[in-house]
Amino acid sequence: MHFVFMGVSGSGKSRVAQCVAQRLELPCAEADRFHPAANITKMAAGEPLTDADRHPWLTALAEWIADHERRGQDTLMACSALKRSYRDTLRSGSAETCFLHLDGPTPVIAQRLEQRSDHFMPAGLLPSQQEELEPLESDEAGVTLDVSPSVGKIAEHAVRFITTARGA
C-alpha cells in the first residue's frame, strides 16, 4: 500500500510523513524534490502553478509509486495532492494508494508558513492553494487528520490508521 500525506503548504505533510516513515521503517518521498526547477522558480516568485505545470511532476510521483509497487514495497509520500484529478494521477501508480489529508484552521497553517525559512513556498500562496483544494471524496480511500495537535500526536494517529489499513 502507498500512503500520501496531502494538504496545503504548511499543513505539516513533510514533518509528519518523515516521523511516520521512521516509526514504520518505510521509504518516504518528499514530492517537492520532484518539482522541475521552473516550478520552484515560479512558486518562489509567488506565482501559483497551473495544472500544466503540475502534470509532469505528478507523473513522476506516480512513477515512483509504481516502481515501489512492482517491488512489493509499501511507501509514504508527502504531496499536496490538492485536486481529485491530481490524486487520480497518483493512484495511476497503484490502485492501493490511500490519502491522509492534513487539514486545519487557516490561522494555524498560516502561522506555520510565516515561521518557515527553509522552503521556497511563500505564505502568500496559501489562499490559492486553499482555493484549489478539493477535500477527499467519499469514494477515495483515506482519512482527514486535524493539524492542530503536535506533530507527534498527528503522527500517532497516522501510524494507527496506516497500521490498520495495512492489516498489521
Results as ranks from 00 to 15, higher is better:
residue 88 D to H: 11
residue 155 A to C: 07
residue 132 E to S: 15
residue 89 T to W: 10
residue 103 D to F: 11
residue 115 Q to T: 10
residue 136 L to M: 08
residue 85 S to H: 09
residue 101 H to T: 04
residue 68 H to V: 07
residue 100 L to S: 05
residue 140 E to P: 01
residue 158 A to L: 00
residue 40 I to P: 04
residue 66 A to V: 08
residue 150 S to C: 04
residue 82 L to M: 07
residue 140 E to I: 05
residue 75 T to Q: 03
residue 79 C to D: 02
residue 38 A to K: 12
residue 101 H to E: 07
residue 80 S to Q: 02
residue 44 A to E: 10
residue 78 A to N: 02
residue 83 K to Q: 06
residue 63 E to K: 11
residue 152 G to Y: 05
residue 142 G to W: 00
residue 30 E to G: 07
residue 105 P to H: 13
residue 134 E to P: 03
residue 45 A to C: 08
residue 157 H to K: 11
residue 33 R to F: 09
residue 70 R to N: 10
residue 45 A to F: 09
residue 86 Y to H: 12
residue 28 C to M: 14
residue 71 R to H: 14
residue 157 H to D: 13
residue 86 Y to M: 11
residue 117 S to A: 14
residue 92 S to M: 08
residue 108 V to G: 07
residue 132 E to D: 11
residue 112 R to Q: 13
residue 152 G to C: 07
residue 65 I to D: 02
residue 90 L to Y: 03
residue 33 R to T: 11
residue 88 D to G: 07
residue 120 F to M: 07
residue 147 V to W: 01
residue 122 P to D: 11
residue 135 P to D: 00
residue 61 L to T: 01
residue 94 S to R: 10
residue 91 R to L: 01
residue 122 P to G: 12
residue 27 P to K: 11
residue 117 S to N: 14
residue 110 A to M: 15
residue 71 R to Q: 15
residue 75 T to W: 02
residue 137 E to H: 12
residue 108 V to T: 14
residue 56 P to C: 08
residue 147 V to S: 03
residue 26 L to K: 08
residue 75 T to D: 02
residue 153 K to N: 09
residue 63 E to N: 14
residue 77 M to A: 15
residue 89 T to P: 04
residue 147 V to C: 12
residue 87 R to D: 00
residue 145 L to D: 01
